[in-house]
């Protein structure tokens, strides 16, 4: 059995002559919050539609629980979606919208709906029609709708798009609660890496229909955190000097570069010790790359 709950294999979607998704291989671990990031038109929504079963791939496949093709169709009901805007009946209440979806799954328990509404913070909306809901409330109801039937995978397309800061925090808290309390794997897209960085455990960065980077939150943190970048002729010897200085949080990046992630105020002292050990230091400086600049660099044309 695969360690991944969801994978795509050379997944493609072509509209006319235009490839919206040009062969991507996404790997999502069970229980992860997988953030799919990309600029507008990068192919995120099309990818999520194919994962969610709303669109058929032109070629390639989506593997769910290790099953592909017709076999994946049998477990398709374990994947729930909130794509683009949450389709709601404006003249119906939150409860009624939920009930309509619950009926599809044969769920008749009123408490089930109440609990889900409570989970997304809509437990007290009463008989208010959804057309009177704020955008944030609509998105949260969309998430609650997607939660009906206890899916194993939740696919959310830009749920924070257009929300005010308060709305963004609400959605973020909701997703964290869902992941923590229900253990659901979440695939969420956004064009704002900064926002996803607060919830996601894994990332996939899309650009022009391709997956240009796939990494864990730790790897991203490593790429973007503050560090002392040392360029020297002998990184192997430099690491011995650093350990003698009590520095353990460092990483040899390549043949001449070492990144030190601690004691950021001791640049001068580290430089002196390296020189004293006979090493030639051609560059030593405190650097950091913001999530935004990292994203822009990765998706540079």
């Amino acid at each position: 059995m695969s360690e991944y709950i969801l994978q795509t294999h050379d997944l493609r979607k072509v509209y006319g002559q235009q490839a919206a998704v040009a062969g991507i291989d996404i790997k999502v671990e069970r229980g992860a919050i997988y953030g799919l990031i990309g600029k507008n038109g990068a192919g995120k929504t099309t990818t999520l539609k194919m994962i969610g079963g709303l669109a058929a791939p032109t070629s390639g496949s989506v593997e769910i629980f290790g099953k592909t093709g017709a076999a994946a169709g049998a477990v398709r009901n374990r994947v729930s979606c909130l794509i683009e805007d949450p389709g709601l009946y404006g003249n119906m209440t939150a409860y009624q919208n939920m009930r309509a979806k619950c009926l599809i799954f044969g769920i008749k328990d009123k408490k089930y709906i109440d609990d889900l509404l409570q989970l997304v913070g809509l437990g007290d909306v009463g008989k208010k029609k959804t057309k009177q809901f704020s955008l944030g409330m609509r998105q949260r109801l969309g998430i609650a709708l997607a939660m009906v039937g206890e899916p194993d995978i939740l696919v959310l397309d830009e749920p924070i798009n257009g929300l005010d800061p308060e709305g963004i925090v609400e959605i973020r808290d909701t997703l964290t609660a869902i992941s923590r309390d229900k253990g659901i794997t979440i695939v969420i897209s956004s064009h704002i890496l900064e926002e996803l960085s607060k919830v996601a455990t894994h990332y996939g960065i899309m650009h022009h229909g391709r997956l240009v980077e796939q990494m864990t939150a730790e790897e991203l943190q490593e790429r973007c955190s503050m560090r002392i970048e040392v360029v020297t002729d002998r990184p192997d010897k430099a690491s011995t000097v650093l350990e003698d200085m009590g520095i353990t949080n460092y990483k040899v990046v390549d043949r001449e570069t070492i990144n030190i992630m601690e004691r950021l105020d001791d640049v001068a002292y580290i430089n002196r010790e390296l020189n004293a050990a006979g090493l030639l230091v051609s560059k030593i400086a405190v650097n950091n790359e913001s999530l935004e600049s990292f994203f822009l660099n990765v998706t540079e044309d």
Partner: peptide, 17 residues
């Protein structure tokens, strides 16, 4: 057309075999 117009169909269409 209600389901298609308000997007409700996307809430469950993918889950139908």
């Amino acid at each position: 057309t209600a389901d298609f117009n308000n997007g409700y169909i996307k809430n469950y269409g993918g889950q139908l075999r």
